[in-house]
Design a protein around this nucleic acid. Structure first.
Lengths: 203, 203
DNA sequence: TTACGGTTTAACCATATGGTTGACAAATGT
DNA sequence: ACATTTGTCAACCATATGGTTAAACCGTAA
């Protein structure tokens, strides 16, 4: 039942590396484990990706390139701020539910190596916040939303949507729920987060 | 100018281990590096803490025990919800600014080992959310705040306050600011976050 | 003074780990 | 059919790493 993309050796490696790196991080991952998961010899990893660092970067860029379009939904789309917030919250939570390790992986490795974000910026599709800022400022002037700093609003939107996935084990411990209940809470957030934000900024 | 606690060998080790583990994580940390930082022989680490795992757990518990009281501020204090939100946001952001690696460290290692939260729960001071829930429900009934689920509100408060620290490199990249500007944004959040939340729940 | 317990060190050990090599097979081109 | 490139593997290598050991050091109490 191999349904992922091709099963060329190269993509077998990438899939295996993705799964190992995203759960264990750069430091925790072992080349041997990746090779085993891919069902190939360890030498193959080096044949296709030279060394651990380059294999890791391939995985990281791939992960980041999945997140970027999500952000562009809220940054470069043409709808109103309110619509954007509703769309983003719903879409993002759905998306991450299907890729639960993504945000934690990206954020964690970015913390260990902050300069890495520069490499990501070289990418054409790197999210740009300018349009969003202008729009918020405009809607504030316009009187369609309350006075608020666009950057702070952006950080808030991100926080409310991303944090629960990153802090899942902590939150589950604090609010004392099991996996099923947590899932339900996340599901509810698809609309609850947007409502919460909009409540705060609408007049 | 050694001003940290004692400078017994044991606490020298703990301080060094804290600094290394919190920046590099369990996997990234090297016993030799900890020994060097503590200015002692590597064998000493094992003499005082048997092995890497136990040394790590000592550091982790210590870190967690610093965060718990912060949470109890919002959970078990007697003020109104609104006051709690203002106090917590301001206090927490101040506190983390002084211990920037703490939240990321705790959350990261909890992700790698979710069962760890159980060990933390054995601690008497482990935060309990019940009082907070009752209070929110009461204030909702009471008509002093809008209808909102207490658990979701709690997650929101946590998200808005904690996330910016965890995702600092990502956020800095996205909103294109340097360290100084980021610091200013964080400073502003000491009040802005509370305002944002309260705006959302007040009638 | 000496015996003793806790402390500290240098040297050592076993294993894990990222990476390499050389042989060999499977395609691919001519 | 033959040569050349590309892909794959088992075995190997150098080093890093967590952990151990045996001896030395040092204060102190008998």
């Amino acid at each position: 039942m191999k349904n992922k993309k091709n099963d060329t050796t190269e993509s077998l490696i990438l899939e295996a590396a993705k799964s190992i790196f995203q759960t264990k991080g750069m430091d925790g991952a072992r080349m041997q484990e990746i090779a085993d998961k891919a069902g190939i010899n360890k030498a193959m990893l080096h044949y296709y990706y030279r060394n651990k660092q380059l294999l890791f970067e391939a995985v990281f860029k791939n992960a980041f390139s999945l997140l970027a379009p999500q952000l562009n939904t809220i940054l470069n789309d043409d709808s109103s701020i309110e619509e954007k917030i509703r769309n983003f919250s719903s879409n993002y939570i759905t998306f991450i539910t299907e890729h639960p390790y993504l945000p934690n992986f990206v954020i964690q490795e970015l913390n260990k190596n902050p300069a890495f974000i520069l490499k990501m910026k070289e990418n054409k599709a790197f999210p740009n916040i300018e349009k969003f800022k202008k729009q918020v400022d405009f809607e504030v002037q316009n009187g369609s939303i309350k006075q608020i700093d666009a950057t702070q609003l952006f950080i808030n939107i991100l926080s409310l949507n991303v944090f629960p996935f990153i802090a899942k084990p902590l939150i589950m411990g604090l609010i004392e729920v099991d996996d099923v209940a947590f899932k339900a809470i996340i599901e509810e957030r698809k609309t609850a987060v947007a409502n919460f934000i909009i409540n705060s900024i609408k007049l």
